[in-house]
Design a binder for these strands. Structure first.
Lengths: 193, 193
DNA sequence: GACTTTGTCGGACATTCGTCCTACAACGCT
DNA sequence: AGCGTTGTAGGACGAATGTCCGACAAAGTC
């Protein structure tokens, strides 16, 4: 097995475990067991736990970037693109009910730990934020595009938190529907000048 | 010092530390140091870490209950009562920017840990949820009162998460204002029958 | 066929974790 | 004055933590 592919296996396993258990609660031994490597051997691939965290964030940034590009290629309609984002809540409902949002929970944990990588984790949000803002601009809401993007982000975070806390499946559907209705209402008023 | 007052000191310190650092990341030694007690002596007051968590949740339930009663005594206007809830985001902005929402982050962490006390933590949300639902009922929205309560809860959770991630002070103000505007729009349509 | 490189293994390390016990100081009661 | 209760101190316990090292198998290079 090449070093690079082993490294990727480690990062993939760490990505999953950091999401499911949290960063602090996941030990070297847990990740090692997940990829069936000896615990000590980790030192060869990653010097510290923070190095793994950096690699996981980099992986998520790359994956998120690809996902956003795919949504952008799928349609020219900005509203439909935004709906693609909103539908994450439905697509990933099973995992969200158990573990919440990977980005939100990581940012929250790193904030509490005053962790150096907190800003890197936040940049995952920034990726979504800027992409959503571009879609709202394309929708003709240039002036408020960033505020609208933050609003969409805010709603999906809130839905994820409550869905996890209550384990409520239907709540997700209701709020997603309401979010889509809100989105339709955001189309700019027709210009009668 | 009586055992009871020492116990309360411990629970108060644990409450703060669980909020600021998270449950898992807070050790017996941390709490002991905060109340200037020897680490080993904890066994006299609390047999296990879970016992402390239970006591912290009980304390939060009691404090939250008192807060809701105070809001209910302060005014007869249900909308103004709901605004009292929304204003938590402004009142506690400093701590929220650093650590997020105490309830949301605790529920999320306990969910990831598959912790037995997760449902107890969720009952903190339930307290707010039922109280908010009663206010919406009093506002004349009986049929949708629970959904509206969940919507308010969802928004405040989302605002807390993003405010923490971005450290954005103004974002809180903007979303609180928008939430109040949304609330005004929730008054039932006048009955013309 | 000797030599270097690459990736893995098993375990050592100091520390910290949650848990638990024993010894003792301070106090109220008789 | 002697006694029992109550609360604290200090430290022991095994397990687990993140970090790190030396030995070694497999593969490629000369």
């Amino acid at each position: 097995m090449s070093a690079e592919s082993t490294r990727q296996e480690i990062v993939k396993a760490a990505d999953r475990l950091f999401y499911e258990r949290g960063f602090e609660a996941t030990s070297f031994a847990d990740i090692a067991a997940a990829v069936r490597l000896s615990r000590g051997n980790f030192y060869y691939h990653f010097k510290t736990k923070n190095d793994i965290l950096d690699a996981v964030i980099a992986l998520r940034l790359a994956n998120t970037g690809r996902m956003l590009e795919a949504w952008e290629s799928a349609t020219d309609d900005p509203a439909e693109r935004i709906r693609s984002f909103i539908r994450i809540l439905v697509m990933n409902r099973a995992k969200i009910l158990l573990y919440g949002c990977p980005v939100g929970s990581l940012c929250n944990e790193l904030a509490k730990l005053h962790h150096a990588a907190k800003d890197d984790a936040t940049s995952l949000f920034t990726l979504f934020r800027d992409w959503l803002a571009r879609q709202f601009s394309a929708l003709g809401r240039e002036a408020e595009s960033d505020a609208l993007a933050m609003h969409v982000l805010m709603r999906s975070q809130g839905v994820a938190i409550l869905a996890t806390a209550f384990g409520d499946d239907d709540f997700i559907d209701r709020e997603v529907e309401e979010m889509c209705a809100w989105l339709e209402a955001q189309r700019p008023a027709a210009d009668h000048s």
